[in-house]
Design a protein around this nucleic acid. Sequence first.
DNA 1: AATGCGGGGAC
DNA 2: GTCCCAGCATT
Length: 373
Amino acid sequence: MIRSHRSSAVSLELSPTLARAIRRKLLRWYDDHKRDLPWRSRSTDAYAQWVAEVMLQQTQVDTVIPYYERFLKRFPTVETLAAASLDDVLTLWQGLGYYRRAVNLHRGAGYVVRIGGMPRSSTCLQEIPGIGRYTAGAIASIAYGERVAAVDGNVARVLSRLFYIDSPVSDRDTQKRLWTTADHLRPRQRCGDFNQAWMDLGSAICTPNAPRCDLCPLIRECVGFQAGVAASLPVKTAKKTVPETHHVVAVVKSRGAYLITKRPTGGLWGGLWEFPNRSCPVESGAKTVLNSLLDCLGFDGATQPRRAGVLSHRLTHRLMHFETFVIQPSRRNGVGLDGDYSWAKTIELNERALSTASRKIFALANKLTHTQS
DNA sequence: AATGCGGGGAC
DNA sequence: GTCCCAGCATT
């Protein structure tokens, strides 16, 4: 019975014979179809693998590649990264998202240099901030040849189909089972290649939608395919509706430079620069909130704000609306503008770490300026 | 166990 | 529009 098969222990559904067949077929397929990716040309460089794996967290390969090339060119070694300023690291990271990754990478580089080099095992790698079980397994198996599993979204999808695992993939028990299954499948040799083979298979064949089962090297072993349910796996839990928030933004321009401020590290866009702004519960109250913001910045009512429009920006977990105003005061009479504030000309702005939302706000403000001038 | 954390590619 | 992506840290 299918059901009893599915609910049986891994050791029962994964016989040594089956495990051997899966290893052999997947590695053979990988030898013929592996992608040519930048980090694969330096697979023994644990630092290079670390950078790649962190960038690839929740981020697609094609998005990462140009960032990776720039990053490794600028910071070719962990020592060069440790010696850099966080601002410079974030500038290279801008647009890639999840900026805590860059902060942790920079912090981690300092840690690695202090302890005299990259940790040499999957377990020790997890002492580095931003490296969890998956990333540690990937780095250790690829760079060191350690025999350790690495279950990411790709592997979870392939394994859930291969073994018809239909409990919600985010559940703890499901995750535990996936890792246990991956542990059983680890080959004694080429574990790094094996881990990457899952990912290439998940990218090219065992895709989230409309998997190409006809091309899959594991079609004969795939219980999900045999049952005709491969495309509906893994089972994901419904997502909740994202909250909507409104904000007012002051793009203050004086003598060709713009007033920007640095966000505190930790939260959304932590450590990045942006134009002064405030949350605004109701859109209709924008003018009041703007005046309050300008007061705090030290720009009084003598400067006439001009409304540039509303910029909407969608994140995975939030929909944000920025009602944008341009202010051109006659004097830079701002008060309390400490180290977290700065004036930056357009060309300097391009070298600062700004969020994509801030870039879009800047474009909107510039459109107004050029239209009216 | 649930939530916060970006942005873009694919459909 | 929707879904999802080489996850991790925090609570």
